[in-house]
């Protein structure tokens, strides 16, 4: 992380919790860059996170009010804070397991109510912190610690889910698209109402290893090759679309 962003980091917290090659550290930097470019006042921001790897992105690292909550309940905590103090700029940062599995109900209700907050979901396709188990975003057929024969179930399309529930701004980017991701986060922060960013991020240690996806750099290259825009996707057949990740504003 470049020195000029250090002012956003809580002094005295030296060590990060990320595994080697984790994409969430990239996402952490991109969120701060978006905040920096918008010149937001960190004293007016509230970061709410749940339980899991991504919940560590704001807490304890961001030098602002941070609320590290229970597993799955981030949006409910954030709702109470926002209702009482509407001046707070509320950002929820958590993982796919936290927001879409255990917290799925709160996610769709937050979107339905159009609560004025930005939700960033770091989607690493599995439960990383507990050692790599299947979750609601794990691709069908993928190997995890609890699907040794391959995941028999379909994953959620989180963006479509949240859009259908009423979110006013929805976008998906991979951490391999840093400039687009920063633009997306900025737009989400400037949107009044419920905004949602699905950040696709590689998990080499827990997910990549079991699915033989190679080294962290290989996983990043693979992500780059699979991300396509909605327009390009429209021209492809269902067969050609297999394995592709549609990114952009949705």
């Amino acid at each position: 992380m470049v020195r000029e962003l250090e002012k956003y980091l809580r002094p005295g917290i030296g060590v990060t919790t990320y595994c080697p090659g984790c994409g969430e550290a990239i996402l952490q930097g991109l969120i701060l860059r978006a905040i920096d470019e918008l010149k937001l006042n960190m004293d007016e921001m509230l970061f709410v996170s749940g339980i899991g790897c991504a919940a560590w992105i704001p807490s304890p690292y961001f030098y602002a009010d941070t609320l590290h909550t229970l597993h799955g309940r981030t949006i409910a905590f954030a709702t109470g804070a926002k209702m009482v103090n509407p001046k707070l700029k509320v950002m929820v940062i958590s993982g796919d397991g936290d927001l879409a599995d255990i917290g799925g109900n709160h996610l769709i209700h937050g979107a339905r109510r159009n609560m004025d907050m930005t939700v960033i979901c770091a989607n690493n396709q599995n439960y990383g912190m507990t050692g790599g188990q299947v979750c609601a975003t794990t691709p069908e057929g993928a190997l995890t610690m609890t699907t040794h024969q391959g995941n028999p179930f379909r994953p959620f399309d989180l963006c479509r889910l949240v859009k259908a529930a009423g979110a006013v701004y929805v976008a998906r980017y991979a951490v391999t698209q840093p400039m687009a991701m920063i633009r997306g986060i900025k737009k989400a922060l400037q949107t009044k109402g419920f905004s949602f960013i699905e950040a696709i991020t590689p998990c080499p240690v827990q997910f990549g290893r079991r699915n033989k996806l190679g080294k962290p750099a290989d996983m990043l290259k693979d992500l780059m090759s699979r991300c396509i825009s909605e327009e390009k996707a429209a021209a492809l057949s269902a067969e050609e679309l297999k394995g592709k990740i549609i990114t952009g504003e949705l």
Partner: peptide, 19 residues
């Protein structure tokens, strides 16, 4: 707020209390 369940209700109260 009438929340989506009791878990959300109490969690939102904790957020509100800290606000």
């Amino acid at each position: 707020m009438q929340m989506e369940d009791e878990i959300a209700s109490i969690c939102s109260c904790i957020g509100a209390s800290w606000a």
